[in-house]
Structure formats: structure tokens, C-alpha cells
């Protein structure tokens, strides 16, 4: 996974407990905290799982809770601070943004060699609801996507509910509803 995604764990740790908390989590994941994460580097997925595992231990949260916070934090802080313009280009409202998710990931994948980004497709379920289909070779990251979607709701000031549906063999579906028409 790209360093720019993993970086959310670092940012989240620093915002929750400062440098010392991040050092603990990094140490637990076997990462040299001084070198940290290079945002354009494609890291083995094991590192992501190790970071989540270590944060889970240090923060006494379940891995899914960590992943959801990790996703939210990425949208609201990490992405916003480093790639704000890129995110803004993906859409000015929740629905447009979700609609452009696959396009955005496709462009990132074409621009950074060696990355394997997830695929997204969506189906409208009504004026304020849609179903998002997420496909990835990485398993167990449904909570991360859920956190990203909730983060997007906050980003656009649109209270959102995300329901993770039962995973299928090659994909994971989410039902997303928001309170007002975006």
C-alpha cells in the first residue's frame, strides 16, 4: 500500500498521543520511526497490517476500530493536508466524489508505477442513497473504506450512514445514505 495511505496511522497516532505514541506504534510494527513513511513509496501490505495491529495493541482498540479511524483520519487530515487539491478535483459533493472514486484511483495507479489500487463502482439506490462496490486484492480492509466514507461525509458536511454488507467472494458492498441531497 502506498505510504501516503499508511501515513494516516502516523498522523492519527501523533494527533492522539504525540510523538511518544507514534514511536510505540512504529516500534511495534518494526518500522524505523526516524525514517518514517515515504508517501510515494509502495510498501508491502504486511506493513499496513502490522501498523494496524500495533496501533490496536497500543490503543486497546479492535483492528476494525483502528481501520475505521485510520480511514476517517486520512480523508479529514492526511489527504486534506497533503493532497487537498487532488481531493477537491475529485468532486465538491459526496455523491460526485464517490462517483469519481474509481477514476481517481485509476489515475493514481497510472501515475505511480507498481501500485495496485482498489476498484470502485456505484449504483444509485435512491436520491440520497447508493451502493458502493469495492474490489481489492487486499483482504480485511472493509472498515478502512467505511472510515473513508464517513470521513467524506464530514468533509462535505453531510451526515452519512454507512452499512457494510456481507462480503462476497471478490468484492465488498457498502450502502451509503446521507440526510440531505448533496
Amino acid at each position: 500500500m502506498l505510504g501516503m495511505v499508511n501515513q494516516a496511522v502516523e498522523d492519527m497516532a501523533r494527533s492522539l498521543g504525540g510523538e511518544s505514541l507514534w514511536l510505540k506504534i512504529a516500534e511495534g510494527a518494526g518500522l524505523d520511526p526516524e525514517v518514517g513513511l515515504l508517501r510515494m513509496e509502495s510498501y508491502p501490505d504486511e506493513l499496513t497490517y502490522a501498523l494496524v495491529g500495533s496501533a490496536s495493541q497500543v490503543l486497546s482498540l479492535s483492528p476494525d476500530q483502528v481501520l475505521e479511524e485510520f480511514g476517517k483520519h486520512w480523508i479529514l487530515y492526511t489527504g486534506e493536508n497533503g493532497y487537498g487539491q487532488l481531493l477537491k478535483g475529485a468532486g465538491q459533493d459526496l455523491k460526485t466524489f464517490i462517483g469519481n472514486l474509481d477514476l481517481l484511483h485509476g489515475k493514481v495507479e497510472s501515475l505511480i508505477p507498481g501500485t495496485r489500487c482498489p476498484r470502485f463502482s456505484s449504483q444509485e439506490l435512491g436520491p440520497n442513497c447508493l451502493r458502493l462496490i469495492y474490489r481489492s486484492h487486499r483482504k480485511g480492509l472493509g472498515a478502512l473504506v467505511s472510515g473513508l466514507l464517513k470521513g467524506l461525509g464530514e468533509r462535505f458536511g453531510t451526515p452519512v450512514s454507512v452499512q457494510i454488507l456481507d462480503p462476497e467472494e471478490d468484492c465488498q458492498a457498502f450502502e451509503i445514505c446521507w440526510e440531505q441531497a448533496p
Binding site: 501516503m4 508517501r39 510515494m40 497533503g82 493532497y83 487539491q85 487532488l86 478535483g89 475529485a90 468532486g91 465538491q92 460526485t96 466524489f97 462517483g99 469519481n100 477514476l103 481517481l104 489515475k107 493514481v108 497510472s110 501515475l111 505511480i112
Partner: peptide, 24 residues
């Protein structure tokens, strides 16, 4: 937004690349 550009239009890729290069 991204969806407003033509599918054959690469200009957004160049801009994204510029931003990613800044990050790198």
C-alpha cells in the same frame, strides 16, 4: 471535477503528477 474532463483528456494526469512529484 475529474468527471467533467473528457476521457481522452490527459491534462488532469499531468497536474496530478506535478502534485505527486511535489510530494515525492
Amino acid at each position: 471535477d475529474l468527471g467533467d474532463l473528457g476521457v481522452l483528456d490527459n491534462s488532469i494526469e499531468f497536474l496530478m503528477q506535478a502534485q505527486l512529484q511535489e510530494v515525492a
